[in-house]
Amino acid sequence: MGLLDVFRSNRNKGSASVAKERLQILVAHDRAFRNRPSYLPKLQQEILEVIRKYVEVDLDAVSVNYEQDEDQEFLELNIVLPDAAGRT
């Protein structure tokens, strides 16, 4: 390292660390998505259809989340119902 680099490195951390951080987040997200079972979109669609038979909910009212760790799989369903005024 040169003498001037001492000052330089304080001034500017470099863009590589930003790239690495962004990639780590992105790749983790991509991988989580890749490992999801292929039936999830259809499951979400059908649950939504059933709920809409009874309650007027938005198309994005149902979210399906899938998570996996070493020995467990989680399937999380989240349904947002409209406030009382919207119910029929």
């Binding site: 490195s9 500017n12 951390k13 470099g14 863009s15 590589a16 660390s17 790239a19 690495k20 990639l23 780590q24 790749v27």
Partner: peptide
Amino acid sequence: RVERGEMLSVNDVQEIL
């Protein structure tokens, strides 16, 4: 460029992939 912090290093890429 890696030394100047402008490019991902071998270790960075290895860590990700």
